[in-house]
């Protein structure tokens, strides 16, 4: 076991004051959002084709 490699795996913990920043930094998109956006773009392109 390499000590330096293992030590590099440790990251500082977030402080309580940094909760707000951490929440805003989180990704808000899930697969449902992605699929819905794909469907919306398809609808728009189909309407354009009909015109």
């Amino acid at each position: 076991m390499n000590f330096e490699d293992e030590l590099s795996k440790f990251r500082p913990s977030l402080d309580i004051d940094e909760t707000e920043e951490a929440i805003y930094a989180q990704k808000k998109e899930d697969v449902v959002d992605v699929i819905q956006q794909i469907i919306d773009e398809l609808k728009v392109s189909q309407i354009r084709k009909r015109k």
């Binding site: 913990s13 977030l14 309580i16 940094e18 909760t19 951490a22 929440i23 989180q26």
Partner: peptide, 12 residues
């Protein structure tokens, strides 16, 4: 013991 991460999830 990761209280900040826990709070983040609960607030969201």
């Amino acid at each position: 013991g990761e209280c900040t991460d826990a709070l983040c999830e609960w607030v969201i």
